[in-house]
């Protein structure tokens, strides 16, 4: 009888632990979704300026028009400089393509490549929601911040592990550290200069990244004119890539 009671108690404790862990995961993941929403609407259009600063101080600037729909569709049109004008990048889930007018067809790319050649790789520029690509493995508190430790859901995600620092008040990202599968720090992204974009969206307007792998290089992304917008699914298809410039 005693043994039976102990068995039932053991089962109960296991269930309690499982449900607690499960509840934690759900809560933490829900919190991460909220962090995503505070960074960008789920579907939006925006303009970005990407500035790559080389060790010798020289700068290269790119102006892009970017759009996103739902959890895993995003596209980007280069507006400047003239040498890159009308190039289009499309991302659907883990798949990425680059369309160059002189080539005349979309070419598959990997998330680790960088279309601009700077510290921001394709996955940073065509970023999906963090909650789409990562699971929360644990969450802790550090003063006025939450620290999220995120683990990639699949191997095709650009970074295996991400450490995310988020302000508790407002759930706004302030810093992101990206690690490889071998636990090497690949880059750090700092989110600065808050701006009211309207429609209740207040978020950092500047993302600055440095990498210990590329010492002396810096890349800066300035976000502007973020607007919530609905798009037809046709825009996020390969045959539409040459026509995205007409859509803007």
């Amino acid at each position: 009888m005693k043994a039976k009671i102990m068995k039932i108690n053991g089962l109960f404790i296991c269930l309690l632990v499982f449900s607690t862990v499960s509840a934690f995961c759900q809560d933490a993941q829900a919190l991460l979704v909220q962090v995503d929403r505070n960074l960008m609407p789920e579907s939006y259009e925006a303009y970005r300026k990407i500035i790559d600063i080389e060790p010798d101080g020289k700068r290269k600037e790119y102006l892009v028009y970017s759009i996103k729909k739902g959890k895993d569709k995003t596209a980007m049109l280069f507006l400047a400089p003239a040498s890159e004008k009308d190039r289009v990048m499309l991302r659907i889930g883990d798949n990425m393509w680059l369309y160059i007018p002189a080539v005349g067809r979309p070419i598959r790319q990997t998330s680790l490549q960088s279309v601009t050649g700077g510290i921001f790789n394709n996955a940073d520029i065509l970023a999906l929601d963090l909650s789409v690509e990562y699971n929360v493995s644990d969450i802790s508190q550090d003063g006025e911040d939450y620290i999220f430790n995120l683990k990639a859901k699949t191997q095709s995600v650009a970074y295996d592990r991400v450490k995310l620092r988020v302000f508790k008040k407002g759930l706004i990202v302030s810093r992101m550290e990206c690690y490889s599968a071998t636990d090497i720090l690949l880059k750090t992204l700092e989110f600065t200069q808050p701006k009211d974009f309207g429609g209740g969206l207040v978020r950092p307007a500047v993302i600055e990244t440095t990498s210990p792998v590329h010492k002396g290089y810096r890349s800066i992304m300035i976000v502007s004119k973020v607007r919530q917008k609905k798009f037809p699914d046709e825009i996020f298809t390969l045959p539409y890539m040459p026509r995205i410039k007409d859509f803007r």
């Binding site: 006025e144 302000f167 008040k169 407002g170 706004i172 302030s174 810093r175 700092e190 989110f191 600065t192 200069q193 808050p194 009211d196 207040v202 950092p204 500047v206």
Partner: peptide
């Protein structure tokens, strides 16, 4: 609140 927090960080 958000602006103040981010401004400190920045």
């Amino acid at each position: 609140v958000v602006c103040a927090a981010l401004s400190c960080a920045a």
